[in-house]
């Protein structure tokens, strides 16, 4: 009996994690980079490159894009390192590698800092130091300004912090042209204006989660009704802004049609979110706005990509 219990104890000790040894596998480290956010970064950066009036060697463009992606992933990793405590109490994030105990905070910090420094240096060497500086600023803004400062202190967190998510087209165009052009500034403005309705629609649905984690999201601080009004206000600004590429001449006929229809779709849903305030229908329409906002931004950028990348550009004016 005693030998049997000893054997069981030994088997149990054998299966326990060894102190000081990393428990994460490759997929856990990849998850630290927030792959879905990284895809958005690559996608918007690629469009920033494609609409650019000048061009670079495809290999230089590819490596620049890769470094922007790695820099974006690194900032996501550092965000997860800093926010591990609040990630652990939110249902949406509690399975992330650090709160799940698969990766130690120190490992994530080292991983994020190494990738941040590496991506900035390589981008500077491969393209130019303006693009590298902008990438470094993006990482700094997301990690320090948004994650460490704004996120836990003001309901305007995602409004100001949204600038970090909107910068990739500017970084990418700077990598190609060596300067910051109006085209990329307009793309920045579209993503910047899109961020509040997108995240606040999610925050309306997940307000309990944010409340538990102590994050001052707009619905928890100003209330759901004020949030609904602000969603509508930002969408009223976003819909015409979506047409700005047409006016400036880098959005063609297909883009004009898509942004017009998409803009009306966003407006219609924002009005519904503003009107429906109680019960299941209110939650459902907020969820619909969240989902449609992703499709809207994707279609705007995908259309620009197809128009410029595959020679389908037909100017609306002239």
């Amino acid at each position: 009996m005693s030998s049997m219990s000893n054997a069981l104890t030994e088997a149990h000790v054998e299966s326990l994690p060894t102190a000081g040894v990393s428990q994460g596998d490759v997929s856990d480290f990849f998850a630290l980079l927030k792959p879905r956010v990284m895809f958005l970064v690559v996608f918007t950066a690629l469009v920033g490159m494609v609409v650019s009036p000048s061009s670079v060697h495809p290999i230089v463009a590819f490596v620049s894009l890769l470094m922007i992606a790695v820099g974006g992933g690194a900032s996501g990793c550092l965000n997860m390192w800093w926010d591990a405590d609040i990630d652990a109490v939110m249902t949406r994030t509690r399975k992330r590698p650090i709160p799940a105990g698969k990766i130690e905070p120190g490992e994530a910090l080292a991983f994020g800092v190494t990738l941040s420094a590496g991506s900035v240096i390589i981008l500077g060497l491969v393209s130019n130091w303006l693009a590298a500086g902008l990438l470094a600023f993006t990482i700094f803004f997301y990690v320090v300004v948004y994650s460490m400062w704004l996120k836990r202190s003001t309901p305007q967190n995602i409004v100001i912090g949204g600038a970090a998510g909107a910068l990739p087209p500017i970084v990418a165009q700077a990598a190609v042209t060596g300067h910051v052009a109006w085209d990329s500034v307009i793309l920045f403005a579209i993503i910047f204006m899109w961020t509040p309705p997108h995240f606040w629609a999610l925050a309306l649905v997940k307000s309990g989660d944010y409340e538990r984690a102590g994050i001052p999201m707009m619905p928890n601080v100003a209330g759901p009704d004020s949030t609904r009004f602000q969603i509508l206000a930002y969408t009223i600004l976003l819909a015409p802004l979506g047409l700005a590429p047409v006016v400036l001449g880098f959005g063609g006929l297909a883009y004009a049609i898509i942004s017009l229809i998409g803009g009306f779709g966003m407006l219609a849903l924002a009005v519904q979110v503003y009107r429906l305030r109680e019960g299941e229908p209110a939650m459902r329409v907020a969820q619909q706005l969240f989902g449609f906002s992703i499709l809207y931004l994707f279609l705007l950028f995908a259309t620009l990509l197809v128009e410029h990348g595959f020679g389908f550009f037909r100017p609306v004016f002239g």
Partner: peptide, 14 residues
């Protein structure tokens, strides 16, 4: 330090 077989596998993958 003696790694468990699972830890050895993960280390090899990394």
């Amino acid at each position: 330090v003696r790694l468990t077989p699972e830890e050895q596998k993960r280390r090899r993958q990394r």
